[in-house]
Each structure stands twice: as C-alpha cells, then as structure tokens.
Design a protein around this nucleic acid. Structure first.
Lengths: 243, 243
DNA sequence: CCCCTCAAATAAGTATGACTTTTAAGTCAC
DNA sequence: GTGACTTAAAAGTCATACTTATTTGAGGGG
C-alpha cells in the first residue's frame, strides 16, 4: 500500500570520494564566476590548493572538460571556456548554477524550457499514458486540490512535482522524461521564493485536474492546451511574459 | 565579406589523447548495447583489453560516471546503469547513439524535442532578435528558396541548418541556443536518409520565409505558428503524428 | 628588418608500484 | 538460523619517473 518511491528523491547522491569533493568545489566555482572564462588553472597548483594528488586533480579536470567547462591543453594549462560553450543541459551544471549567483537567470531559462516542453509532453501523454499513469495523475491532482488551502504548501509541492513527473514520463519520450528533475527543481525553487503562507492559485489547481481528465480521456489537444495555460502562468510569475 | 564562421562546424573536435580514444570506444559500446545495463567491467580488465594504464582507464570511467552511464563501486566494479538513468541530453551520448543502432529512436526523440522547442524559440526570437539576426534569417531563407530546386540539397541543407541556428540563438535563451547542434544533427540525418535527388517540400521552404518575415516584424504569434507548421511536418515524416 | 628554423623550457599526458579503504561474502561460534 | 568476525577483492589514493606536445624565443639567413 506504500508508494513505489519518493517522488522527488534527492539528486545530489553523495559527496564521497576525493575527486567528487574536488569536483563539487571546482564546478560551482567556475559556473559561479569565481574563475571567469579565460582563467588558466595549472594542475600542480590545484594539487597544492586542494591538497590532493595528481590522480584526483586529473580526474576532476577530465569531468569538467567533458562538460565543456574547461579545456586542457599541453604547455598551457586548464582554461575556463566561454559560457556559451558550456553544456547547459548537464544536470550537474544546472544544479551548480541554481545554487550560485546565476540562480535567477537559470530559473528563467528553465521555466522557458519547461513551458515549451510540458504542453508537448502532455499531448503525447494523452496518447501514450497507461491506465496506471492516468490513475497516478488523477490521484496527484486530487491531492493538490486537497492541500491547496491552509498552509499546506510543502505537501502541495510534493504532489505538484509528482504530477509533472508523471506527465513527462507518460509522454513516452525519454528526453522529456529526463526533465522531471529539472521541473522539480523549478517548482521547488518557486515555492521557496514564494511567501510560505500564500496558498497556490486556485485556477492553477483546477487546470491540473483538467489536464488529468484530458489525458485520461485521450484528448491530446485539451491536455496540451490546459498544460500550456499552467506554464504560461509560470512564465508570467517571472515576468517573462507581459501580464 | 566572408562569413563569421561555418554554420555547422563539426562537433567531434579530436580523438586525440589516449583517454579520449578509450572514451570513444567505451561510450558507443555502452550506448550501443554491447555492454547492456548491469554489465560489470573491472578496471584491470579494461587496462589489458585496451592496453592502456590505470590512469587512462580511471579518467575515462570518471567521465562515463559523470554521464550516469556507469556507476563505480568498491569491491564490485564499474557497473553499466539502466538506460533511464543516462544523461540523454549529453551531446556526446546523443552523438554516440546517433552513430549506433539506436539512431532511429534517437532521431525520433530529438525531432519531438525540436518540435516542442523551436516554436517557442521563434516566438521569443520575434521579440529579441537583433537587426543583424533578422538579416541573417532573411538571407538564409532566400538562399533556401534559391537552392530548393535542381539537386542542390547539400547547399540547401547548409542554409536550413543556419536558419534554425539563428532562430535558436536569437531566442535569447541560452538553453535553446545550445540545441543548435542537435537540430543540425536532425536536419542532416533527415537529408541523408532522403533520396538525395528529392527536392525539399516547397511548402516548407515558403514557411521558412514566412518565419523570417514574422520575426522581422516582431510578430511572435505568427513566428510561432509558422515554425510549428515546419516542425509538425518533420514529425509527420517520422510517422510520429498521424497524416 | 623580417621571416624562417630550430632548440629549449614547460605543463599536460602516460605508466607503474605501493599502499589505503570500502564492502561483499564467506566463516565460525552461539 | 542468526549474528559477529574475518578475509579478500576491487576501487581509491599517492608519489614518482618518464613521455610528448607546444609555446616561446633565440639565432641565422634572406
């Protein structure tokens, strides 16, 4: 009778392992602007600065290089690459930027991304969702209604996140499904910014129920439209759209 | 008078460096299914198999781990993770899968992604595009018209790719902009699959001109609508949508 | 005076051996 | 059978020696 897993399991698995610790220092430092593009890091300098061995430094640098955050060249060093070249879809980079000074900008980018993806995902979900997924969707929507009043934002958030995760997963598109964590991050970030005693917009809650109904009915057009109304609301909150 | 850079510069920089070579062997092998999820690789086995040192193996494994393709645990080994956990937005993974047996599925996923993103990007572009970008857009659209007849598909493709790159870049959203390479890959893949003597659909060509006009006029709604018509056509080609 | 060539210095890349730490699995006593 | 203890396997870390590519600049020729 228990759930098959917590809807929003933490996405920072473990800071264990020396190289991970170094990565979790260097990554945020770069994405946060402490080492602006063009900065040259030398490996032996990093060895001393973080008091780790060559092995550890090299492994961390390799990972940063695979994210296109830095470029390692012989006789030059490890150079921080320009922002436009970063792999901005890398979950780690997204996490680092959300935790750093770029957070507002990152939230805007992600919200725009979400607004483009989710309506399409909902349309696909209306055609591909399994009965179980439809049931989950309805359940979460109803729970959102139930927790939408009276300072229950934390509980509301859990169901909101779960709802959108199911939509993305039910779309049948693996890439859409992978955006579940990102959407969770955006929704959580929004809730944290909101005054914690402000109940959610009743219209938004209703729209979630409508989406669930449309998906269950296999009505792709309606699912897409209602989802778009939800995400347009999210855009408006960030002033990306005119009111 | 020359262009400021080739529109579709190759995205496989260099297979130089031992660890890169190993990565380019292991990555495709994993994403291609040669090492299915659950497979356990031991580092010393990889050392012998590829005749490289621990250093090299460890660095390659670290990168694969950062892509969530594998998980390295003590006393166990390097385990290939289930497909659902892979970072499917990682450009390297996308490239590997496009080059492997998963290519058709990957192209479908990417086309769906593209169809969701590009209309939104076009709408944003209509509001944010600089005069220079509008000019580029118009130029590429006209070049598409010029090369749309008489076995000029390679030239047509170049302008098609450039056109969509400008749209994504002009959206002002860094994440949208980063999808330029992906769209280029999809368009190229489609052209290669098409019989090389089939001229592009005239309606699609016209739509590109309309999009350019709409962006120039700052008409977000029209830019979005025409772009959607383009991408819906792309979806239809892959039978994702009913005709 | 400029350009070309070549040598040297530098920093990353690679290889290897020794040692540490985690942890799965087996063993033994209860 | 259940629990605690031992063992061994594999990754993790460190230090060192050596290799290779590349920038820089110095010298020689045009």
């Amino acid at each position: 009778m228990n759930e098959q897993g917590p809807p929003g399991r933490g996405q920072k698995p473990r800071p264990q392992g020396l190289h991970d610790r170094l990565l979790e220092s260097l990554g945020p430092a770069i994405t946060g602007g402490d080492y602006p593009p063009g900065t040259v890091l030398r490996t032996d300098e990093l060895e001393r600065r973080y008091d780790v061995s060559r092995t550890v430094v090299r492994e961390a640098v390799r990972v940063l290089e695979s994210m296109h955050l830095v470029e390692s060249r012989r006789r030059v060093g490890v150079t921080v690459r320009p922002t436009e070249e970063w792999d901005v879809f890398d979950p780690q980079i997204i996490r680092w930027r959300l935790a750093g000074p770029d957070r507002p900008r990152q939230l805007r980018s992600l919200t725009a991304l979400r607004s483009a993806i989710e309506p399409a995902a909902a349309a696909l979900a209306a055609e591909h969702a399994t009965p179980e997924q439809c049931a989950e969707l309805t359940e979460h929507a109803l729970n959102m209604v139930a927790t939408s009043r009276g300072q229950q934002l934390p509980a509301y958030l859990i169901h909101d996140v779960a709802f959108h995760r199911v939509i993305l997963r039910a779309s049948g598109n693996e890439m859409f499904a992978r955006l579940g964590d990102v959407v969770a991050e955006v929704l959580t970030g929004r809730t944290e910014h909101r005054i914690m005693f402000t109940d959610p917009d009743p219209e938004a809650v209703t729209l979630h129920v409508r989406v669930a109904e449309a998906v269950r009915a296999g009505n792709a057009e309606a699912a897409e439209r209602y989802t778009r109304e939800i995400t347009v609301g999210a855009l408006r909150e960030l002033d990306i759209l005119a009111p």
